[in-house]
Amino acid sequence: MTMTTPPSAAGPRWLYLHGFASGPSSTKGVRIAAHFEGRGVAVERLDLRVPSLERLRLSAMIGAVKQAIGGERDRAVVMGSSLGGLTACRVAEEDARVCALMLLAPAFRIMERWRLRLGEEGFRAWEEQGWLEVDDYAEKKRARVDFGFAADAAEVDERSGGWPDVRVPTLIVHGRSDEVVDIALSRTFAAGKPHVRLIEVDDGHELVASIPRILREADDFLRHFVGG
């Protein structure tokens, strides 16, 4: 189910993409949507647990976002957190309807990092067993994710040499103390790209303490899209 408010009369659609094992009611998504609603902009908080958390597929997430943009003449400002940020990038490199990105601790090189975190033995166990137990932050319980997520994400992540080929104006906010997605990945992605601005904050992966800063930076970065 998509969490949404009525669309704006003019301008692009605004989409918010939550992170892995999160959902459309995440703290950042709700705060960002409420902030821009006060400025007359509707932010659609997409549910990207597709087809479900247990059978999650990055390729299906990308497809869901493309569908949410609308018709071929529609445009979208896409905001994404962690895996939602990676999804936003992959949509933007394939779909010219995306006109700007705001990324919060984007999960670049996701399966490369998961292999390192789990170790080769743990990664093989996931493949052989068929599922991996994870924290479901949206439902506040433990859940299983099948190995198909890893295979699908690895295939997507290999495109463009492992880095999304993003050509649209992009704002990244990333915490220097992020222990889930190293800020060095965002630094590498942003390096030498005049259309990418990286804001470094003293925060961890969730960036909840940095929401006021995120909103200020978003107001400035996206000011041309407010009100069409």
Rank of each mutant, 00 (worst) to 15 (best):
A107E: 10
A218N: 02
M61S: 13
E206W: 04
E121Y: 04
R90H: 15
E112M: 09
F221W: 09
L17C: 11
P194N: 07
V134H: 07
Y137I: 05
L53H: 15
R167G: 08
E206G: 12
T2V: 15
A143D: 14
G148C: 11
P164H: 06
R216N: 05
A218I: 02
L53K: 13
D182F: 08
V201L: 05
E44S: 15
Q67C: 03
F20I: 08
L15H: 06
E158M: 13
M61E: 15
E120I: 04
R159W: 13
F221S: 00
Q129C: 02
V77E: 01
D152Q: 06
T87L: 08
L46Y: 10
A125L: 08
I32R: 04
I183S: 08
R13F: 08
S52W: 11
E120L: 03
E72T: 10
A42F: 11
A21L: 15
G227E: 08
R124V: 03
A88K: 01
G227P: 01
P6I: 14
M1D: 15
L103M: 02
D165L: 10
S210R: 00
A218H: 05
V65Y: 06
R197T: 12
G29N: 01
F149Q: 07
V166H: 02
V41K: 02
I62R: 06
L83R: 13
H35T: 05
A151R: 11
D152P: 02
L116P: 03
I110N: 11
A64C: 05
S81R: 09
A218W: 01
A33P: 05
R49Y: 08
I32E: 01
H35R: 02
A9Y: 06
L58P: 04
V181L: 04
T87A: 14
E121A: 14
R223I: 03
A191I: 00
A76K: 03
G161T: 13
R55I: 01
R75H: 12
F108W: 14
D95T: 03
M3A: 15
L171R: 01
R167K: 12
H195T: 00
Q67T: 14
E44L: 07
H195M: 00
G70W: 04
I199V: 14
P194V: 04
G80T: 11
G204W: 06
H205S: 13
G130V: 04
R176C: 08
R187A: 06
E120S: 13
E93N: 06
R124G: 00
A96P: 08
F20R: 14
A33S: 15
G40Q: 12
M3Q: 14
A105Q: 09
E155K: 10
R39M: 15
R49K: 11
A21N: 14
R144G: 03
V145R: 05
